[in-house]
Amino acid sequence: MSGLNFRGIWAIYRTEMARTRRTVWQSVATPVITTVLYFIVFGGAIGSRMKQVGGVGYGAFIVPGLIMLTLLTQGISNASVAIYFPKFTRTIFELLSAPISSTEAVFAYVGAAATKSVMIGLIILATATLFVPVRVLHPGWMVAFLLLTAVSFALFGFIIGIWAENFEQLAIIPSLVVTPLTFLGGAFYSIDMLPQPWRTISLFNPVVYLVSGFRWSFYGVGDVGVATSLGFIVAFMVLCLALLWWIFRSGYRLKP
């Protein structure tokens, strides 16, 4: 055999996607129900008493933030579980003994995790259009942000899955770091609405840049410039890739 192991990549990708089919309710229904709840609470109950934010109705305003929130959490949880579970059940021996490169394996696992989060993101978008008028001013950028975010956070999740040595560690970063950052990242408000010094502090929250850039692609308004948003997410992706490169080079937590 020479060249890339495409069949190997496909085998992993297909198996990962099959897992989604097996757990279709958990994978798809949960985020949809959660989103509907957000719309009822934030869009319906609270939003009806709120003015427009940046020229956009509140219900429509939160749509990009909600999709981003889902992309982040789904990307991380899908990819981290995908690689942690074989470690836990020790089936990872098979991956390590197979004629497949680390890059190919990451491509397959991260690709599957990102595919799932993008699918869920699009389902949420479709659900949202049932409740509020959603416009997409820059569809190309919207897709670009969607894909970049899904892939970056799947990579981040993959790293967490390799690092985690038990289920507690697997859950700690998503629940202790990512969820607070997303809620404080301007998914439900514009950071202009915050008093100082919180507004300035928010600029240190990476999620602000993701939500802002994504929202810009919908409505043409954002908390920070679109170039800054794009630059941030690319930088985050490069950081994850560099970490993974080091992990596979050193065999960290994979090969004794």
């Binding site: 190997g8 198996t15 098979e94 004629p99 497949i100």
Partner: peptide, 17 residues
């Protein structure tokens, strides 16, 4: 543990290219 016998065997064959 969630995969079927046939699927898991087919998976390994694919993994090995």
């Amino acid at each position: 543990i969630f995969a079927t016998v046939e699927d898991t065997v087919r998976f390994t064959r694919g993994l090995f290219g």
